[in-house]
Design a protein around this nucleic acid. Structure first.
Lengths: 159, 159
DNA sequence: CCGGTCTACTTGACATGTCATACACCCCGA
DNA sequence: TCGGGGTGTATGACATGTCAAGTAGACCGG
């Protein structure tokens, strides 16, 4: 384990730029969303997922899958969103353990108000400065890393 | 402002993959670091920055610059790290307002213990699955986005 | 040398995220 | 049908991050 290969100049530079970019980008998008629509990025992601499901209704674990969040993070977050009237919970007749999360009318109108502005911000800060090749490259990178992480997870789970 | 260009298939896919990758990657790296060295990613970044400065000693605002953190986040975090004996504060004779942050021996040995393992993990999950071209591409993307964010910041600050 | 204004940092209140744990319910074999 | 072992979700304690406000020293024009 001692003295593995360190990162070379190019790798180190890429890593630092990446970290800095993510921090600044998310801070920026968060502030914009908060200012324009009173939502956090987290709220947005949840609402956005719900609109991808029929009738704005989904199981908690479906959202966990889609968002790649910790289960308890989602649970806490849903409670707060419920407090603010953005979502409700419904009983699920099929499975007594389940919790159905449902978009309220307020939730729907919040996301409908927020979405165009948020997308515009993402486009302005990210996609407008990238070529189509770079977009494809970014996706390839993200998917390669995700695959690796999944492989590692399986490996350790199987142990 | 109504109905701006939405993201196309390729952009949307890239964005979702990117978000998911970041969440999983950081969670993974955090757990690994926590497990191997009892440090959080945040601790690691701070300590790592300090080792880049002569005598493991730096001004708070230098760290803010380098890490791209909120000022108060760093302030709170330094207090906790000080509580755990990883860093100390020293008075700065040049400027009475300043706070010098100094790496303690424990801090130094913590980062020296953590670094090889952390770097190995980053390499394993990220750079080992990327080609040199992809690394260069990632860096180019990150820098392009950072430049844009800075341009926007200057613009709004100048208004 | 006085006041205003900037700069560097800290603080407190509060929002958010994590980990471990609890809990109710499903499933399945004896 | 009883019990044991998952599954799906919630919760409590606590770590972390954010925003707004506070403090204190520096700088500068009169």
């Amino acid at each position: 384990m001692d003295d593995p290969r360190w990162l070379d100049e190019s790798e180190h530079g890429a890593w630092c730029s990446y970290i800095a970019m993510h921090a600044r980008l998310m801070a920026q998008l968060h502030r914009q969303l908060q200012h324009d629509a009173g939502l956090s990025l987290a709220d947005y992601d949840v609402l956005s997922q719900l609109t991808n499901h029929p009738a704005g209704r989904a199981r908690v674990f479906e959202l966990v899958e889609a968002l790649q969040w910790e289960q308890s993070r989602l649970s806490h977050h849903l409670k707060r969103m419920q407090g603010r009237g953005l979502v409700t919970r419904e009983y699920c007749p099929d499975d007594g353990r389940a919790a159905l999360v449902v978009l309220t009318p307020e939730g729907r109108s919040a996301i409908e108000h927020a979405a165009p502005r948020h997308v515009a911000a993402v486009r302005d800060l990210v996609f407008d400065v990238l070529t189509p090749d770079q977009v494809a490259g970014l996706r390839a990178v993200a998917e390669a890393v995700l695959d690796r992480i999944e492989a590692r997870d399986d490996g350790s789970a199987a142990t």
